[in-house]
Amino acid sequence: MNLRDSARPAEVSGTTAPGLWRGTSRTDRDGARRERLLEAALELYGTLGFRGTSIQALCHESGVSSRSFYELFPARRSGSARESITAQESLLEQLYIVLNEEIGEAMAALTIPAESDLLDTTVRIVSAALMPMLADERKARVLEVEAVGVNESLEARRRETMRMLAAAVDAAFTRVRSTFDLPLPGSSPHFNDGGLTSLIIVGGITEALVQRVHTPVPERMPTSDFLLHISEVALRAYGAGPDLAAGSA
């Protein structure tokens, strides 16, 4: 899915029967409509906010009819059947999933040059995780602001995402410790802190992103400095102070 360069052609009314219509299948047409609605949600939720966006605005932005909107993102009951989830909430949840998948793909594609020292390696890891949101702050706002407190279903997904990110942080620092032969007790698989160190790091980074989104651009520190400071804090949390980081080249 491309959430940056998607075109938004107007939807053309026509038959909904199975098979081809003007050379495209119903599945392909629905896929294109879903893509355009996700693009519209990123733009509107990421600028006006989830609660400031109407279905009419989403349909206008995407060129998709309201009928198609409700077909593609229907209201539903949660898995526990304790709450009703609106069509807009279903769209937000799908956008949340797609944006997190993008971050996961960036992390999976990360490569570290052999000559990288400890601090540079950590900056590269942090950058892979954060640059999708720093390069497009609509994504940061959707993930860290607009998706918060919407419903219990999405909150459960957010908690699970935090746990997965914390596990990824632990795994990354375990590799760093092994690569640089560092005495980082916090990242040792035999050091059982219940995952608190990694959860605190992930939670702290989340709050730092929220603060950055709400800070006027002229008052922000440069992105490179932001990533460097987060990396230094993460290293200290795992027991590698400035001396160890500087001496690992």
Rank of each mutant, 00 (worst) to 15 (best):
I97F: 05
E35K: 12
I125F: 09
R138T: 13
T215L: 09
I112M: 05
A171M: 07
I55F: 07
D225N: 13
S66D: 05
T111I: 05
N192C: 12
P9S: 06
E89L: 03
D181L: 12
L48V: 14
R141K: 15
V148A: 00
D136L: 08
E207A: 15
A75F: 03
L110T: 05
G14L: 07
R26C: 09
A17L: 15
Q56D: 15
E207V: 15
L42A: 11
A109E: 08
D117K: 07
L3Q: 06
A156Y: 01
I85R: 02
P222K: 08
F180R: 02
S84H: 15
M107Y: 11
E39R: 09
T161R: 10
G46W: 08
S116K: 04
V217M: 10
S65L: 03
E35Y: 05
L199F: 04
Q88Y: 07
R159T: 11
L184W: 03
E89V: 01
S231K: 03
A75V: 04
A208L: 15
T53N: 03
G14S: 11
C59T: 09
Q94V: 09
L130C: 14
G63N: 01
D243V: 12
L209N: 11
M162P: 03
F73R: 06
S187E: 03
L91A: 03
A10Q: 14
T15C: 11
D243H: 05
A129N: 11
S13P: 03
I200H: 08
D120Y: 06
E160L: 11
S6I: 15
E83M: 02
G52F: 05
E43F: 09
P185R: 09
A108H: 09
H214R: 06
A245G: 00
E83S: 01
L48G: 14
A240P: 00
I103P: 06
L182C: 13
S78W: 02
R141G: 07
E105D: 14
A40Y: 06
R26G: 09
A237R: 00
S224Y: 10
L227W: 07
R158P: 05
G239D: 01
L95C: 04
G104M: 08
Q88P: 10
F226M: 10
E35D: 13
G194K: 00
M162N: 09
V148K: 10
L119V: 10
G203Y: 06
M131W: 10
V142I: 08
A140E: 10
A147E: 00
E152K: 02
H214S: 08
R220N: 07
V142R: 02
S153D: 02
V210S: 05
H214A: 13
I103H: 09
Y70V: 09
A106Q: 13
E89M: 03
L58K: 02
A129S: 15
I55H: 02
L44E: 09
A128L: 07
L235G: 00
L227H: 08
L196T: 11
S80H: 07
E207D: 14
A140P: 10
M131F: 13
R124W: 13
S187A: 07
G49K: 05
V217Y: 13
T122P: 01
L196N: 06
I200L: 14
R124N: 14
I230P: 04
L134T: 11
E35R: 14
Q56A: 15
